[in-house]
Design a protein around this nucleic acid. Structure first.
Lengths: 349, 349
DNA sequence: ATTCAAATTTAAATCGTTTTGAAAAATTCG
DNA sequence: CGAATTTTTCAAAACGATTTAAATTTGAAT
């Protein structure tokens, strides 16, 4: 591997000048710079990251810690993020160090990574409301970016979708179609995204002058089986009049709901409307549902580039407040939603 | 952060002695060592990895590149490995840098990681037969460990299960139970594990004096739906007499076969025997199948510690040939296999 | 007490870069 | 043309560890 010294020897220049030439410093003569760049290229020079790091204190590495559920259900979305993120980071010459958290205290794994002292910052995924990791890293002065929101008016960088709006958009659409009995199959409430969705749902329901009995609000780690069993139960009529519409936290849940509707001989959207939030996973496409699914859509993949850039910019000194992105998910009306069926207009209670 | 210099200043010793004391060199006085260790601890000293790396040339980081199928189906097993592997590496103070390969040429991603020059070695997962990555890394002189086998009599470290034996054990069990029509639902043949399973299957079938028409050998990325549709087809009788037993590459496939059997009103093991290979994913337990599943079992998790250790030892200089582990999967006979049903004793052809 | 060997410790070089402060070269100006 | 600038280049320090070769201390033997 060619080093700065090799180049400087080759050209009879000092290492300092070579370093400056390659790093675009203004005080180096144009002719010199050309020569240096040419020989650097010819000799296949690549700066030694370790040496750079020793002197600059920056490692060009960031960490991410995967927190797996007992049943590994986070896989799909996690790998989706991982794919986009590694690519986006590589674009800015940053590597991703991965660890998997297997214990109770979410902060422990970060503490251990930090001890090694090889990371410039972290990407925090699947945040909870008032996530303890945020507190911990803030206190330690470690840069990080959050995928999602842990609270309002925060000082750190984040990229997330407006989850309150996701729910209100869905409810407003259904209400406009005349639905009065709208059930909600949410994700695990301990996560910020689900907590926000629930707030949005409740406020939009109230806004529309409606109520929803607690029996028609379910929450669990999103899965098709959760959607299926919960929808079956809610549609059985045991807990009250059957809902005419479902708001689902994920397309997986919606798949379960559609299956339950099919098993009960209910037509969608004739007898039942279904809307879900769509993370746009390539393996699970809402347009291919039967019927095609009405969704609020926000590709997980879209988060990756902003997440990477926010974090790197923050590490480079940009204020966290200037690195916050909140996007409004797009409402896409397809064939799984329709007007409230005849005889389904009575609200609960 | 306290440095060696801080400690040496505190004790009036030279940095060299402090370094030696902390690294257990024999030539340092016992009393001195005690003092050094005590103050190091008191001052919270942690060696600066970057500095260590610059001088030793070792980074204590290894890379892994995830290759995702279009539909991300590798998720489960990949995350399982990732979990165990990061833990096993951490045990030896090594970090894992992850990248995701999104292009055609499998070697490109490795080339790019190598360019950065920050890695001591690689873990190669899901190898194909005569995997090009092996060639590439060997030529470059980069240490690596393979999870699986890419060929016989190789010089590099690996950990894998004897996939030929997996198939022969399964076939021999079924043959001993009197089965003569044994179908095979294999994984994607382009992967080494599936190629080996197929070889084992064919040789064991021949050994038992049997034949299997090609219509009863299926191969695809393992999934429940593959097992279901393929079993339905094979059991339809359209391609010949229905098999009395299935050998499945994974428990997921077996789940599909059981479902197909159920749909067709076939009892397991009364009318049909099913055996699968079990990676022992925590989310997918063969003992909880109905009926409990007969398997050849080899927990993926077991691979992690040997993989990590083999790689690290190899990086530290141990010869690759001394770091090869091939385990024989355990045959666990449960309730999904039984004697050949009445009237099912006729072999194919 | 002197000599020699063994046990300890040390100063200094090294890894490959960035960056400071000074020096040299080139340019401008009176 | 010489002085004053402005450009451009350079030597050396720094980052924090490891390691070589040399120096010192210690202890035993004469």
């Amino acid at each position: 591997m060619a080093t700065l010294k090799d180049i400087s020897a080759e050209l009879g220049l000092s290492v300092a000048t070579v370093s400056r030439a390659l790093n675009g410093f203004p005080e180096v003569n144009a002719k010199t710079r050309m020569k240096v760049e040419a020989t650097a290229k010819r000799m296949g020079y690549r700066p030694n990251r370790t040496a750079q790091r020793l002197v600059t204190g920056k490692s060009n590495m960031v960490g991410m810690i995967a927190k797996l559920n007992a049943d590994n259900t986070a896989d799909r979305t996690f790998l989706e993020i991982l794919t986009g993120l590694t690519a986006a980071l590589a674009e800015r010459d940053v590597d991703l160090v991965l660890a998997v958290d297997q214990e109770d205290d979410p902060v422990k794994a970060y503490e251990r990574m930090l001890e090694r002292g090889i990371l410039d910052g972290f990407i925090l995924n699947a945040p909870m409301r008032d996530d303890p990791r945020v507190d911990f890293l803030t206190r330690r002065g470690v840069p990080f970016v959050v995928h999602g929101q842990t609270a309002e008016d925060v000082g750190y960088p984040f990229y997330g979708i407006d989850n309150t709006a996701v729910s209100t958009d869905a409810v407003q659409l259904l209400a406009a179609l005349g639905h009065r009995r709208i059930a909600f199959l949410n994700g695990d409430r301990s996560y910020a995204f689900a907590a926000d969705r629930e707030r949005g749902f409740r406020s939009a329901i109230a806004e529309a002058g409606l109520t929803v009995p607690e029996a028609f609000i379910g929450e669990e780690t999103p899965s098709e089986s959760f959607g299926y069993t919960k929808a079956l139960e809610m549609l059985s009529g045991r807990s009250g009049a059957r809902p005419t519409a479902f708001v689902c936290a994920s397309t997986m849940i919606a798949a379960g709901v559609l299956k339950a509707a099919g098993d009960l001989g209910l037509g969608v959207p004739a007898d039942l409307s279904v809307i879900a939030h769509d993370d746009a996973l390539p393996a699970f496409r809402a347009v291919e549902f039967e019927p095609t699914l009405t969704v609020t859509r926000s590709p997980l993949r879209d988060a990756c580039v902003p997440l990477a850039n926010h974090l790197i910019d923050h590490i480079d000194g940009t204020d966290g407040r200037d690195l916050q992105t909140l996007v409004h998910a797009e409402l896409i009306i397809r064939n799984s939603t329709g007007p409230v069926p005849q005889g389904g207009q009575d609200p609960w209670h």
